[in-house]
């Protein structure tokens, strides 16, 4: 884990304030930005992969059965997957606490 920015001392700043842990932004949770949540109905899914291709977060992955699953740690609930799904397998519902 990357040390939190409010704990880093000046001596711990990398040379030139560079970052040496590629992709470490993945530690940052964006899922709590969400007000709507996508709900997937696999029975309608034709595995076309459009949701995966168009997801701005890159948080949709293919599971062992070939269906596409959404990682709620990152999903911001934008609804593009639901909008672009050709079979309406994904619908957006209000996020419940």
């Amino acid at each position: 884990m990357t040390k939190a920015e409010n704990e880093i001392t000046w001596k711990e700043i990398n040379i030139g304030a560079t970052v040496h842990e590629p992709g470490n932004a993945s530690q940052y949770k964006t899922g709590d930005w969400r007000s709507n949540v996508p709900v997937v109905d696999f029975s309608k899914c034709i595995k076309c992969a459009l949701c995966y291709i168009f997801c701005p977060e890159g948080c949709i992955t293919k599971n062992d059965d070939g269906f596409f699953e959404i990682d709620m740690y990152y999903c911001k609930g934008c609804g593009i997957c639901a909008e672009e799904c050709p079979t309406d397998s994904i619908i957006m519902k209000e996020e419940k606490e």
Binding site: G23, A25, S26, Q27, Y28, K29, T30, W33, R34, F54, C55, P56, E57, G58, C59, D71, Y73, Y74, K76, G77, C78, G79, I80
Partner: peptide, 20 residues
């Protein structure tokens, strides 16, 4: 994903789809 999730773009940003 060379452009990893956890980025702070607005939800539904077209730019990051392009980058990905």
């Amino acid at each position: 994903e060379f452009f990893a999730p956890g980025h702070r773009a607005c939800g539904g940003c077209g730019e990051v789809i392009g980058l990905r």
